[in-house]
Amino acid sequence: MKKVYPNKEVCIGCHLCEVACLTAHSKSRDVVIAYKQEKDALGLSPCKTVVHAGPACVALSCRHCEEPACVAACISGALTKNRETGRTEYDEGKCVGCWSCLMACPFGSIRRHPIKEKIVKCDLCAGRDIPACVEACPNWALVYEERGEK
């Protein structure tokens, strides 16, 4: 399956992927409204996290693992592995906010919802051809491609 792969050699730490992610997952799909209204009112937050260590930085998000530890840990059936698409899917309605998945994820790619007892996780931008983060990256540090992994 196609996945988003970060390249830390050329990640410039601008965080535009986070801006794009947040906007793509907003109700308004408008970057200014998303940031100025929805972020605080609805707790909108990006599924992407850029982490820095000195000059090195990289944008992390769900890797849609073949055998996801988060799915195994999920107590409510909110996280499931879709064997057809290869995606690790999240059903917010079923999530009870126990944070087991946060503890289980080896990549720290799941975050708590800032307001609700829910999580925030990459869905590879359902409905978009290319995930918003990849499209927004100004330095080709995020690529969306098939690498022969399942």
């Binding site: 730490g13 601008c14 965080h15 986070e18 801006v19 970057v31 940031y35 100025k36």
Partner: peptide, 8 residues
């Protein structure tokens, strides 16, 4: 939007 892209 105070995203701080300019700051970085």
């Amino acid at each position: 939007i105070n995203c701080q892209v300019c700051v970085r």
